[in-house]
């Protein structure tokens, strides 16, 4: 059981294991992908109970905090597992690992209550060290999606880093954009200035030019899963505050299985 008081130490240790904005590509036999958990520490625990021992890699797609009251414990649990075996856990950054959202969706208040006001600075340190993306078995994994300003995956490695909010438009879009296969090109998103929907043509082009099988991402409240572009873009949601299903994707060899927890 992770106590809230352990989390500041765990995240600072985990920060030392972070390797920049784009992680090295991975190829593994059995991989589990986890969408937004948003403080659902019990779901996170279920995932570790069910998959930690029998999987080669668990990829968390961001949004560990906000919208609940156990974000500190949720981050503590995931970082404790990451420290146990850093090759087995990937923690990508979501748009909620940011001072752009934390004062408004509950995390700053939660941290202040449990650890004191000054403790939030340690979380900021950790958030800005978190990677934006990784390619796993030919799938680009990130929180939101591709960006108007992104032509190839390798560009992500050269983004300004660390970038606290982030302010760089490409990094911002990676964390904030959403796929919509009924549109073409990029159109402005209702999420606000600087965020876009990415359409079918630009996604197909990006996948082809980068030799990718698809995109696996979180960021949207869906009933476990949503498929765009015939399954080439998979959205996963792994929390429960929305009253819907918490899903994970299990990729074994080339077979993708949707599991509802």
């Amino acid at each position: 059981m992770i106590e809230a008081l352990d989390t500041p130490r765990l995240i600072l240790e985990a920060k030392e294991k972070m390797e920049g904005p784009l992680l090295d590509s991975r190829r593994e036999k059995r991989v589990v992908f986890v969408g937004d958990t948003h403080t659902a520490v019990d779901i996170t625990q279920t995932i570790f109970d069910k998959y930690y021992d029998n999987s080669d890699l668990i990829v968390f797609l961001g949004d560990y905090v906000d919208r609940g009251v156990t974000g500190v414990e949720n981050l503590g649990l995931i970082t404790s597992k990451l420290l146990e075996d850093p090759t087995k856990i990937i923690m990508l950054r979501g748009n909620h690992e940011s001072p752009l959202t934390n004062p408004y969706y509950g995390f700053v208040e939660e941290v202040t209550e449990k650890l004191g006001e000054a403790a939030y600075d340690k979380f900021k340190e950790f958030f800005q060290a978190m990677p934006y993306a990784v390619v796993v078995n030919g799938y680009l994994c990130l929180h939101g999606g591709i960006a108007t300003t992104l032509d190839n995956v390798a560009q992500i490695a050269d983004l300004p880093f660390p970038d606290l909010n982030p302010d760089d438009p490409t990094a911002f879009q990676i964390l904030w954009n959403d796929p919509r296969d009924m549109i073409e090109g990029f159109i402005p998103s209702v999420r606000g200035d600087g965020a876009y929907y990415y359409g079918s043509d630009v996604t197909e082009k990006f996948l082809a030019e980068n030799n990718l099988k698809g995109i696996i991402r979180g960021h949207e409240v869906v009933d476990g899963f949503r498929e765009d572009l015939g399954g080439k873009v998979m959205t996963i949601f792994t929390s429960k505050y929305h009253g819907g299903a918490a899903g994970v994707l299990v990729l074994e060899d080339d077979k993708m299985e949707k599991v509802t927890l």
Binding site: M182, V190, Y197, E220, V222, D223
Partner: peptide, 14 residues
């Protein structure tokens, strides 16, 4: 018409 976005997530794409 097709919904690109709306707060009721289940309507998206409908």
């Amino acid at each position: 018409m097709v919904f690109v976005n709306t707060p009721a997530q289940s309507l998206i794409k409908s």
